[in-house]
Nucleic acid binder design. Structure first.
Length: 777
DNA sequence: AGTACTTAAGTTTTT
DNA sequence: CTTAAGTACT
C-alpha cells in the first residue's frame, strides 16, 4: 500500500520570531536553516545532510543577500556541479526575487571558468575561440601521439595515459613538476610524461583545452595575473559553492584564489560552501574530502551550520541509510532524523538472474502505478550502465514507460561529432584534430595518404589545414582529389565569412547542404545511415532552437554549451516515465519511490573499487546516496546470477545489505532461497555478507512461506553432482514456489535456465543447476 | 581507396 | 556479448 497518509508540509510556518516571520525568505525555515540564510561573515560552511533542505537554504540565502541589498545580483557567483543544478537554482532564485535575478553567475565550475577564459585567455597565450576537447577527443589525440612516439611498446594505452595525465592536471602538476617528482627507474612513468608534454603542446597548437585544462588555466590566470584576479575579486561580493565535498585540488585552488587577497589588505568575496562528506562519490576523478574536512582550518573564522533534519524521507529509510553510513569510520558523527513518520518497510528481493530481478522491479512499479503513483515519481538506480539492458527488456515487455538518463549522449554519436567537428573547423581552424576528422566525411576521396600530404604541406608553409585545403593545387596531387580539397576549403571559407553577417543556424544549414553531409547518409542503402541522417536533422533543429533562444550567441557559444552539457542535464520530469540512471547521476535528486538494483558483491561495491584504498568507503557512500534519494518507498534488489562480459557469474549479496538492520527490511525473496550457502567452505566472513535469517524474519516473509532446507544446506561440493535433467513440459517441484511446468529451456549445462510457470501463476526463470527443484510426479 | 572480414578489447562512476 | 579498431582483400 502506498502511504498516502504522509503529508508533505515539512516547513510549517514559524511563529517563533514574529519579526522575521514576516520575511518570506526566512519564515518557513528551521532555526539552523535560518541561521545559514542570515549569517554574514567571511566564511560559512553549511554541513547539509541528505534531504536537509540544502538547495532551499542556498537559494534563500542568495535571494536574501539581494533583497537586503547586501549584494547586487551581478556580485554573486554560485557554483554547482551540474548544469541541471545550476538551472534549477537560477529558476528558484528567480521565483523568490522576480526579475531582479538577472546578472547572477550561477553555473558549474567548468562553465564559469570557460566564461572567464573566453575573455582573459589571451594573457596565457591562447586565442579566445579555443575549442574544448572532451574525453573522446583527447583520447584520439593521445592515441595518435603514443603511436607517433612509439611509446606503445611499453604497453601504454591511450586510456591509461589519459587517466594519469588527468590526475596530474587535477593536482595542478605540469610536466616539469611531474618530471621532478618522478621516481627514477619508472619507464612507464617516463613514457607517460613524454606523452604528457607532447599532448599539451598539441593542445596549445590546436588552440584547444581539455576538461581539466579549463580549471588549470583559470587557476594559472588568477594566480599569475594579480590585476585580473583583483578585477574578479572586486566584481563578486559572494562566492557560493555547492557540493563542496566533491571539489578537487584545482577547484580548491580556484576558490582560494578568488577569496584570498591578491594584494595585501584588499577586500575579497565572502565564501559560502555547502556539502556533505557522506555524499562524496567522486574521489575517482580527483575529488578530495580534505577540502571540506579542513575547510575551517583553511578559512579562519569560519562559521559552521549543521543541517540534520531531513525533510525528504521516512524514518525507516533514514534508519537504513544511517546504519549503512555509520559503518564508515573516520567520519563526523551525524544522525539524520525525520518528522515524517516511520513509513513503509523497505522491500527487498533477490532474483536468480538480472531478468528475474528486473521482473520484480517491473511488477512492483506496475503495482505502485496501479495504486496511484505516477510513473515519473519512480526511479531505478544501478551501479553501471551495462545493467540497463535487462531492465529495458523487461520494462518493454511489461509495458512500463521508462526513460534512460545518462549513458550514451546524443552528442557522443559519431555523426554528431562529425557535424560538431565541422563547426569547430569554422570557429577554430587551428584545431587540426577536428579538421582531420572531417576531411573525408562524406567520402570525397581523401584517404590517409592524401591526408598526410596535406598535413605536411600545411606544416611546411605555416598554414592551417583549411588554408592548406584552399591552396591544395600547390601539393601536386591528382586533379580529382585536388578539386575535392579545394572545394572543401572554399566551402569552409564561405561559411566562415557568412557567420559574421547571417544567423548561425542558417549558415550551418546551407554549409551542410553544400558539402552534402546529410544527403550522403540519406541516400545510403544502409538503414543505420538513415537513422544518422535523422540525428543530424535533429542536430540542426537543436541549433536552430538555440539560435532562436540566444539571438546574440555566436557559434562558439553553442559549441561551448554542447561541450559542457551532460546527459543528466536534460532530464525532463514532465514525461510520464520511470527514470533509470546510475547512482552517480542520482545525486541531488529525489523520488517518492526508489529502486536500488544490483546489490551484489563485485557490482556494489564494484570489483574495481574493492582493492583500492578507500574504495569500499566510497562505494558505501554511493549506496548511501542512493538510499537517501527515496521519499516514501525504497526497494532493494539483486541478481544472484548475472551475465558479465557475456559470461554468467554468480555473486554474493552486497556486503552493504548486512549493514541494514534486519527489522527494517521485508524480504520478498531472500538470497538464501536460491543461492548455495558458502557457509561450509568459506566460514564466518561470508556469513556476515549475507543478511542473516532470524526467527522474526521468517515470520514476516510474505512470498516464501517455507524456506526449503535444501537450499541452505547444500555445500559447494554438491554443485559438482550431476544436475537435474529437465525437458520442456516436465512437471517440477520447487522448494518455495510449489509445483510448476517447464515451458522453455535456454543455455547448456550448468548455465541452463528453465522458464517455469508455477501452478500459482508465477512465471520464473530458474538456473536448473542452482534452483531448489526436483522432478514432480 | 573502399569494403568486408577478423580480432581485440572493454564496462565504474562524469564535468 | 557488443562495439571499435585493425587487417586483408577487392
Amino acid at each position: 500500500m502506498v502511504p498516502r497518509t504522509i503529508e508533505w508540509m515539512p516547513h510549517s510556518p514559524s511563529s517563533e520570531h514574529p519579526a522575521v516571520a514576516a520575511d518570506p525568505l526566512v519564515s518557513g525555515l528551521n532555526p539552523q536553516q535560518r541561521e545559514a540564510v542570515l549569517y554574514r561573515g567571511p566564511a560559512l560552511l553549511i554541513v547539509a545532510g541528505a534531504g536537509s533542505g540544502k538547495t532551499r537554504v542556498l537559494t534563500h540565502r542568495i535571494a536574501h543577500l539581494i533583497s537586503t541589498h547586501d549584494a547586487w545580483p551581478s556580485q554573486i557567483l554560485a557554483i554547482t556541479f551540474t548544469n541541471k543544478a545550476a538551472n534549477e537554482m537560477r529558476e528558484r532564485v528567480g521565483q523568490l526575487l522576480g526579475a531582479a535575478a538577472e546578472g547572477m553567475w550561477i553555473s558549474t565550475f567548468h562553465s564559469a571558468c570557460v566564461r572567464i577564459l573566453r575573455r582573459e585567455i589571451a594573457a596565457l597565450g591562447l586565442g579566445a575561440s579555443f575549442t574544448i576537447y572532451d574525453t573522446h577527443d583527447s583520447r584520439v589525440l593521445l592515441k595518435r601521439l603514443i603511436k607517433e612516439r612509439h611509446a606503445d611498446v611499453e604497453g601504454l594505452t591511450a586510456a591509461a595515459a589519459q587517466h594519469r595525465i588527468s590526475a596530474w592536471k587535477n593536482e595542478l602538476r605540469d610536466p616539469d613538476d611531474v618530471s621532478r617528482e618522478l621516481q627514477p627507474g619508472d619507464p612507464t612513468g617516463e613514457a607517460v610524461l613524454d606523452v604528457y608534454r607532447a599532448y599539451d603542446d598539441a593542445l596549445r597548437r590546436a588552440n584547444a583545452l581539455d576538461f581539466d585544462d579549463i580549471l588549470v588555466y583559470t587557476v594559472h590566470l588568477l594566480n599569475g595575473f594579480p590585476e585580473v584576479r583583483h578585477r574578479y575579486q572586486q566584481k563578486w561580493l559572494h562566492v557560493l559553492v555547492d557540493e563542496y565535498q566533491d571539489t578537487n585540488k584545482a577547484q580548491y585552488e580556484l576558490i582560494r584564489a578568488l577569496t584570498t587577497p591578491a594584494v595585501e589588505g584588499q577586500p575579497v568575496p565572502a565564501l559560502t560552501v555547502v556539502g556533505d562528506s557522506d555524499q562524496s562519490i567522486y574521489a575517482f576523478r580527483g575529488a578530495d574530502l580534505r577540502n571540506i574536512i579542513d575547510f575551517d582550518k583553511d578559512f579562519p573564522g569560519t562559521h559552521v551550520v549543521l543541517l540534520e533534519q531531513n525533510y525528504r524521507s521516512t524514518q525507516r529509510i533514514l534508519d537504513a541509510a544511517n546504519a549503512v553510513i555509520a559503518r564508515n569510520y573516520d567520519r563526523a558523527a551525524k544522525q539524520l532524523w525525520s518528522s515524517l513518520g516511520d513509513g513503509e518497510p523497505i522491500e527487498a528481493f533477490a532474483g536468480y538472474s538480472a531478468h528475474d530481478e528486473a521482473q520484480f522491479v517491473a511488477d512492483e512499479i506496475t503495482r505502485l502505478h496501479r495504486e496511484g503513483l505516477d510513473y515519473r515519481d519512480i526511479a531505478v538506480f544501478y551501479r553501471t550502465n551495462a545493467q540497463t539492458r535487462a531492465l529495458e527488456e523487461i520494462f518493454v515487455r511489461a509495458g512500463v514507460p521508462y526513460r534512460l538518463v545518462g549513458g550514451t549522449k546524443f552528442y557522443d554519436r559519431a555523426e554528431i561529432k562529425d557535424a560538431l567537428a565541422y563547426l569547430v573547423a569554422l570557429v577554430n581552424p587551428a584545431d587540426e584534430l577536428s579538421v582531420r576528422r572531417v576531411l573525408n566525411v562524406p567520402r570525397r576521396g581523401i584517404g590517409p595518404t592524401t591526408e598526410s600530404r596535406l598535413v605536411h604541406f600545411a606544416a611546411e608553409h605555416g598554414l592551417t589545414l583549411p588554408q592548406a585545403l584552399s591552396q591544395a593545387k600547390g601539393i601536386g596531387l591528382g586533379p580529382k582529389v585536388t578539386q575535392a580539397m579545394t572545394s572543401l576549403g572554399q566551402a569552409l571559407e564561405d561559411a566562415q565569412r557568412a557567420l559574421s553577417t547571417e544567423r548561425l543556424d542558417e549558415v550551418v544549414h546551407r554549409f551542410f547542404e553544400h558539402i552534402g553531409l546529410i544527403e550522403a547518409l540519406r541516400t545510403s542503402l544502409d538503414d543505420q545511415d538513415h537513422a544518422r541522417a535523422e540525428n543530424l536533422e535533429e542536430f540542426e533543429a537543436q541549433l536552430t532552437d538555440y539560435a532562436e533562444k540566444n539571438p546574440d550567441a555566436q557559434l562558439i557559444d553553442f559549441l561551448t554549451e554542447v561541450s559542457l552539457t551532460a546527459a543528466a542535464d536534460d532530464l525532463e520530469d514532465e514525461s510520464g516515465s520511470v527514470v533509470l540512471m546510475t547512482l552517480h547521476t542520482a545525486k541531488g535528486l529525489e523520488y517518492p519511490a526508489v529502486f536500488v538494483t544490483g546489490l551484489e558483491q563485485g557490482l556494489l561495491p564494484h570489483q574495481m573499487s574493492i582493492d583500492e584504498i578507500g574504495g569500499i568507503a566510497e562505494e558505501r557512500r554511493l549506496f548511501y546516496v542512493g538510499l537517501t534519494r527515496a521519499q516514501r518507498r525504497l526497494y532493494l534488489s539483486l541478481a544472484v546470477n548475472r551475465t558479465v562480459f557475456g559470461q554468467a557469474q554468480t555473486h554474493e549479496p552486497s556486503q552493504f545489505l548486512a549493514d541494514i538492520p534486519d527489522d527494517l527490511i521485508n524480504w520478498r525473496q531472500r538470497p538464501e532461497d536460491l543461492m548455495v550457502s558458502s557457509l561450509g567452505s568459506r566460514g564466518d566472513s561470508s556469513r556476515r555478507s549475507t543478511p542473516s535469517l532470524s526467527p522474526e524474519d521468517s515470520s514476516r516473509r510474505t512470498q516464501t512461506p517455507k524456506r526449503g532446507g535444501w537450499a541452505s544446506q547444500v555445500t559447494a561440493e554438491s554443485l559438482a553432482k550431476p544436475m537435474l535433467q529437465v525437458s520442456v513440459g516436465d512437471r517440477i517441484r520447487h522448494a518455495s514456489f510449489g509445483q510448476g511446468t517447464v515451458r522453455e529451456l535456454a543455455g547448456e549445462g550448468r548455465k541452463q535456465v528453465a522458464t517455469i510457470v508455477f501452478d500459482g501463476g508465477a512465471r520464473k526463470k530458474l538456473v536448473v543447476a542452482l534452483a531448489p527443484i526436483t522432478l514432480a510426479e
